[in-house]
Amino acid sequence: MPDDTRPLSPHLQVYRPQITSILSVTHRATGVVLAFAALLLAYWLASAAYGPEAFGRAQGVLESWFGRLILFGFTFSLFYHMCNGIRHLGWDMLWGFDMAKLRITGMIVVIASLSLTVLSWLMAYGHVGKL
């Protein structure tokens, strides 16, 4: 050991999963998922620029059950990454580091991202009035 004052990194294999670590891993995972969502957005915009046939093909894929499942996952990833990102910005400003606040804001992130996802899809398909 070169220096015993350095903090040890928490080893995933021996650490009991906790809300803090689970939410942290999920933040990174949703970020990677959203990179694929960005590719899909670029493809979708390009198809619209290409012409009606290409746009129709893209819409056909997106409106299939599989396409909608993917879009639902992207919607949740976006809202989760956004809500937890706000939590991160709070930490950057040195707010919310104690365990009590970490747990409460973590729960808020989970509930808010799930609610916003469901609400968005209900609004999109007219079950809830549009803004």
Binding site: A48, F55, L78, M82, G85, L89, D92, A124
Partner: peptide, 29 residues
Amino acid sequence: RMSAVALLPLSLWFVYSLISLTGSDYDAF
């Protein structure tokens, strides 16, 4: 951080736009 802060309003606008565009055809889009 700067791109994250910019993405907060832009993402909300984009999701709201997609909600409004649901069911639109090529011409409407």
